[in-house]
């Protein structure tokens, strides 16, 4: 690591450091860059249990329920997705905790708050891959 990382990037990209900095700034403001900084390994920071919670939410309520799930600080991602064969859940929320029991407690609280009692917690037992996407290399 060097004290002036944007100078290094600029050299590789054939741009000036000022151009790189203003580009990154602009992309951040526009939302093209969602975040700029350290990507952490949650497991190493004490979040040893991660549960993918899946909820069976009546179609008309998904917006409201999604917002409630998303507001929980233990939830990092929350989406609505289609149902499928042998998969009768349509709202997903990733719950992070120090143990499965902690994740279950969070989910039980969310079930109470949303009134949705048909949900399932899927824990990851093995990580096969976790990388950052490299764009425009096709």
């Amino acid at each position: 690591m060097t004290p002036r990382p944007f100078v290094d990037i600029a050299a590789q990209a054939g741009m000036s450091p000022e151009e790189v900095i203003s580009c990154v700034d602009r992309w951040k403001q526009e939302g093209t860059i969602r975040r700029f900084g350290a990507m952490v390994r949650h497991q190493r920071l004490g979040y040893t249990a991660n549960a993918m919670s899946a909820w069976d939410v009546p179609e008309g309520r998904s917006e409201e329920v999604g917002r409630i799930l998303a507001a929980a600080p233990e939830v990092s991602h929350c989406y609505e997705r289609p149902r499928a064969e042998q998969w009768d859940f349509n709202v997903f929320a990733m719950i992070h905790g120090g143990s499965p029991e902690e994740c279950e407690k969070v989910a039980a609280g969310l079930a109470r708050r949303t009134g949705i009692d048909n949900y399932s917690l899927l824990y990851s037992s093995r990580e096969f891959k976790k990388i950052s996407m490299k764009y425009f290399i096709e």
């Binding site: 952490v40 390994r41 190493r44 920071l45």
Partner: peptide
Amino acid sequence: GEIRRLGASFDSRRLGYTSTL
């Protein structure tokens, strides 16, 4: 190993990409 990478995380949709689970 607590930090995996230092840099940008892009919004794939804004780069014209689409994603799925």
